[in-house]
């Protein structure tokens, strides 16, 4: 209670206002640094994967092989052709605020093996063209297979879709639908180039941008700066509390010292006027001045 009364002194109230300003601005600065840390981490991850050259798919992973640790977001190239049947839709997926379907087609490599390729995004499940015929070189961003969907094989809108609708790119489902040796990976198509005589139908579906890598990437140095801002803010709060408490303690001691002898062995000699020759002459003239 006494501490509370002390805290309401104008001096401490004023400093409290300053403290609030410090707390708000330092918290904000910390959040800003955290944001910098996130975007830096992401930029570093993007630069890292973009800096690597496009690799031939089979040098990164082979059919049935485990997905490589650094394979996510890796840009790969493969030549082959889309299987005429087997195209599936994956829903629900979102792109730019719209809900729709990923169009996924089995891409059979010349060298063997089938890779699921996300060719694009559509909101019209009934109007998806089949994959183009002929040989292509596909450049895509590699991704590991997705986990099984909670609701497998969603029948979309009462079966208006021409292609079967799956809940996710679950490779254990696709391996049973498609022929050939499946890769333990899929790719977001970035580019489909005709290899030889094939004619590519123009932009049949809207491309799906591959997910930005490094969602979990955090520049640890900026994260530490964020932490430091918050620690400084906490320190400022501690300073205020400590000063108010000390002031309250001082008031209490002064009150106790005036009313009666508060026994404190550490400072009783100083309180004793007889043993402190410096203090009395100082105090007495002041009292005389104020009285005159």
């Amino acid at each position: 209670m006494e501490v509370l009364r002390t805290a309401l002194k104008p001096r401490w109230l004023g400093l409290f206002a300053l403290l609030v300003v410090i707390l708000v601005s330092f918290t904000w600065l910390g959040l800003w640094q955290l944001d910098v840390a996130r975007s830096k981490g992401r930029a570093e991850a993007v630069a890292h994967s973009a800096g690597r050259p496009v690799a031939d798919l089979t040098t990164v992973v082979r059919p049935h092989q485990a997905f490589p640790d650094d394979g996510s977001g890796r840009r790969v190239r493969a030549t082959g052709s889309y299987a005429a049947d087997g195209q599936v839709l994956v829903a629900p997926r979102r792109l730019d605020g719209r809900t729709g379907y990923w169009v996924v087609a089995p891409f059979v490599l010349d060298s063997g093996g089938t890779l699921p390729v996300v060719r694009g995004f559509t909101t019209e499940a009934a109007a998806v063209p089949p994959p183009p015929a002929g040989r292509f070189t596909v450049v895509g961003s590699l991704a590991p297979g997705e986990s099984p969907a909670d609701t497998p094989s969603v029948p979309s809108g009462g079966g208006t879709a021409a292609d079967p609708v799956l809940g996710s790119i679950d490779l254990s489902v696709l391996v049973n639908r498609w022929h050939g040796d499946l890769f333990n990976a899929f790719a977001f198509a970035l580019e489909e180039r005709a290899a030889g005589d094939a004619k590519l139908d123009p932009a049949p579906v809207e491309r799906v941008p591959p997910p930005a890598p490094g969602e979990t990437g955090l520049s640890w140095r900026n994260a530490a700066y964020a932490l430091q801002w918050w620690l400084f803010a906490a320190f400022a709060a501690y300073m205020w509390v400590r000063m108010v408490r000390d002031d309250a303690e001082n008031d209490r001691r002064e009150a106790a010292g005036e009313t009666g002898p508060k026994t404190d062995p550490g400072r009783s000699p100083e309180k004793d006027p007889g043993k402190d020759p410096e203090k009395d002459p100082e105090k007495d003239p002041q009292k005389e001045k104020s009285s005159t």
Binding site: L15, F232, Y238
Partner: peptide
């Protein structure tokens, strides 16, 4: 380049040390 970050924490300990001393010897804010 790795130094500014640990230095920030060292400086914070310095602040604590200063406050600790200041409170004990009765410095003003």
């Amino acid at each position: 380049d790795w130094w500014p970050q640990p230095h920030g924490f060292i400086y914070m300990v310095y602040l604590v040390a200063t406050a600790n001393l200041g409170f004990k010897v009765g410095w003003g804010l």
